[in-house]
Design a protein around this nucleic acid. Structure first.
Length: 258
DNA sequence: AAGCTCGGCAT
DNA sequence: ATGCCGAGCTT
């Protein structure tokens, strides 16, 4: 059987995966999976790998046997007690987002408490308060960390690449949080997305005062006419490829999807 | 001594 | 059923 150390795209660069089929004994035919660090150290279990990587890399979605990121593993550690204990109901913890569950395209307040004075008269689903600002937790986007879109086979879809002109801001931002932050803003707000207008250093010093929660955690961005023209061209090209694919001319050219 | 392999416990 | 790791076997 093959004993090739293959690159493992789900892990950081330089990590290799190897699958060795047992060729004798009671367990003949079964296989063992090993990983090799960039430095060549061998790993033979997920706990061993996790111990080594520590906070460096989140293995919670990582399937050791297949070497792929599986969304079915998301939230497997977390539990929602009341529902999880109700064994009659089918319940998938991975479907519960850390944000409100209502259709978020429209602003739908759940409960709005005006003041202590008129307790008992909170408005619930009051249309009048629908356009009022809802409080947002600072850096709430962090709760989206580690969540991924996935396809029907549960394989995690790689994050899209962001233009390098987009720069995040806030404590420990990275491409993942930036993308999630922008996506959330586009989804939740109906105002233009322009980024934070306060200097990044000022925001970091006192977010409670200077952070604009309507805007994503990114530095201000100017979109030029040139950018728009380029994007229009990309869309045009994509539509053309789609048209051709539908026409059946290129049934097997799904390599260059953008 | 280090690396490889399969058994077998634990889950 | 299979993930994990001990330990015997090979190099």
């Amino acid at each position: 059987m093959e004993r090739k150390r293959m690159d493992c795209p789900a892990l950081p660069k330089g990590w290799k995966r190897e699958e060795v089929t047992r060729k004798s004994g009671l367990s003949a035919g079964k296989s063992d999976v090993y990983y090799y660090s960039p430095s060549g150290k061998k790993f033979r279990s997920k706990p061993q790998l996790a111990r080594y990587l520590g906070d460096t890399f989140d293995l919670s979605c990582f399937d050791f046997r297949t070497g792929k990121m599986l969304s079915s593993k998301v939230n497997k550690n977390k539990k929602v007690a009341s529902r999880a204990l109700d064994s009659n109901k089918k319940y998938d913890a991975s479907l519960v987002l850390p944000i409100r569950q209502t259709a978020s395209i429209f602003k739908q307040p759940v409960t709005h408490v005006r003041s202590k004075a008129n307790k008992g008269s909170e408005t619930r689903n009051d249309p009048k308060s629908a356009n009022q600002e809802q409080p947002k937790q600072l850096f709430w986007e962090k709760r989206l960390q580690g969540m991924n879109a996935c396809d029907i086979a549960e394989e995690v879809i790689k994050n899209m690449e962001l233009p390098k002109s987009l720069e995040g801001l806030g404590p420990g931002w990275n491409d993942e949080t930036l993308l999630q932050s922008i996506a959330s803003s586009l989804h939740l707000s109906n105002t233009p997305i322009t980024g934070q207008t306060t200097a990044p250093s000022t925001v970091e010093k006192n977010p409670a005062v200077w952070l604009n929660t309507d805007q994503p955690l990114m530095k201000p961005l100017v979109v030029s006419d040139e950018d728009i023209r380029k994007q229009e061209e990309r869309v045009r090209q994509a539509r053309k490829r789609l048209e051709e694919a539908i026409a059946g001319k290129y049934l097997h050219t799904n390599k260059h999807v953008e």
